[in-house]
Amino acid sequence: MEQFFQQVVNGVMVGSSYAIVALGFGLTFSVMHVLNLAHPETAMVGAFAAFVVATLFTTNLLVVIPLAVLAALLAGLLIERLAIRPTRGRHILTSFIATGGLSIVMQNGAQRIFGVDPVRVAVQVEGVQTVGGVIASNMQLMTFGLAVAMMVGARYYVRNTRWGRATRAVSEKHEVAQALGVDINRVSQLTVGLSTAMAGAAGVSLALLHSQATPFMGAIFGTKSFVCMLVAGNRHIEGIMFVGILLGVLEALVAGYISASLRDMVAFGILVLVLYLRPAGIFGSYEHD
């Protein structure tokens, strides 16, 4: 039983990262109707930014994390300008390829700069917390806290701010919103910026947990966060969080009790089953109009 709870805890920690990447994926999709394939790559940018800062300047987390998130955000703004804005309103596959091209550029660019092998991100957080035999490292708890803070922040922004309201309006009827005075390019920037900042937080979390960063680490998030987004539907931020964390837990359980190599497949299987029963996603539809 202890082992079971340990797996669940580990799963929640990893799943919270999936969740914030998926959340950004879903936010960009539902607002701009664009599939940003370069989105997971911004997580990689965050991880490498953490590496650079930690190696060259300081290992103080209060510096490392904000700078990493900022780097991902800037990368996101660049993606927005280069591949999302020009493909807005066109067929979804157009944005798919435009951002896909950028994702190839980013992966190989990182490889060019940092090499193929993982680089070491030397930031330590000491200590563990034990509750009834279940262990969580302080590092795990910190990254979990970061993910939760990001989700709460995103939710607050979308629900309770002026631009958040405009974002929801654009997501629903962009022409009307524009005619009411909303600058859609601004919404696009804010949405992609927020989304990629969250991905950056996930990337730096992963880099800190595993003490390393690799050029192709975005792929770890890519498919899984895409799956989370589709399964959850994009009506509710809570839905995406829930599915992301659930996926992390399921993976941890399957890896712990059955076999590590089956991990990806069983998670996929369960998710497809869910989709088959509820084609619109568990929490609502991502079809528009």
Partner: peptide
Amino acid sequence: PPHKIAALGIGWVPEGRQVFSTL
């Protein structure tokens, strides 16, 4: 761009209402 035109003082009641139904 539309948002600048709107700012000049043009209001629009679109065909078929088009209220933001989730707001």
